[in-house]
Design a protein around this nucleic acid. Structure first.
Lengths: 149, 149
DNA sequence: GATATATACATGCGCATGCATCTATCAAGC
DNA sequence: GCTTGATAGATGCATGCGCATGTATATATC
């Protein structure tokens, strides 16, 4: 402790981060397992389909999806290509911009994401919300929001 | 809400998970950036070096490290190989088991992890613990522990 | 309206990961 | 001592990612 110029309690920092990491990992692992097993979807794929499901009327472009996913643009391009190859979405030219690509859910994609939403909620409930009272949930959300803000 | 057999408030589940995910992402992103930039280390590599630093006397085997990292055994084998190629650790035969590989920090590795620990703590402090009062930190840890348990 | 720059997306490439499998060694049972 | 099964770790292979770059289109400047 002596030599270093600043030291905001290294041990406390490590502990806080480990705890957050562990909690996140628990939920994420279960969620990814369930989505993969039940729907053959990765988390990022789920996010993309969910975004499309939530914006049924708007013309969704790759760049719109980019805001909904923590992913690089090339990675997103390929992800959409994979979804298209599976028949879950279709790509087409955007209306007023020939550079852009419009992405649209197919019927099969809509069906799948609806099932996936149920799977998602069940997994989150069992690993996260189900372990906390309503008051605890509210408190946790409040605290996490301060960090994520 | 009507048709589905069970429904533990899909919206609340989604919100809770998104918040946890966002908070985790904020900290992780910053942490990964700093460790990479300052020390050239990925998070998993940091974890391995930290474990070795924390167990200086014991003979550490690949299988021991496996418990300290969220990584498959093959991935860990390769990670250790990369660290060895960079001169941060050395692999040698374990004492009483010719199947096992003992992994040991080099001086360069020890120096690097010591710097990395500082970087780590600073990043976590700025993105996590620094944003909360002591009481809030305690409350957060308590809640997250319930999830991670 | 021709040139220059910015934007939207796709592709080449290298890297880290996981799964399945392989090799080498240990431990038991006979 | 030899066979059988378990264990430690390494390697082949396929997948998804990010970075750098390429191509096509749009927009701004002259």
């Amino acid at each position: 402790m002596a030599g270093s110029p600043v030291h905001h309690d290294v041990a406390a920092c490590a502990r806080a981060w480990q705890t957050l990491r562990m909690a996140h990992a628990r939920v994420a692992e279960r969620l990814e397992e369930d989505l993969e097993r039940e729907c053959g979807l990765a988390l990022n794929e789920f996010d993309v389909l969910l975004y499309l499901r939530s914006h049924p009327d708007a013309e969704t472009r790759i760049s719109d999806l980019l805001n909904a996913v923590t992913l690089s643009q090339p990675a997103l391009s390929r992800l959409v290509a994979r979804l298209e190859a599976r028949g879950l979405v279709v790509r087409s030219e955007a209306h007023h911009d020939a550079r852009a690509t419009a992405v649209c859910l197919t019927d099969a994609g809509a069906e799948l994401i609806d099932r996936a939403i149920e799977v998602h909620a069940a997994a989150v409930h069992e690993t996260l919300t189900g372990k906390l009272s309503d008051a605890e949930q509210a408190a946790l959300l409040q605290l996490l929001s301060q960090i994520g803000a």
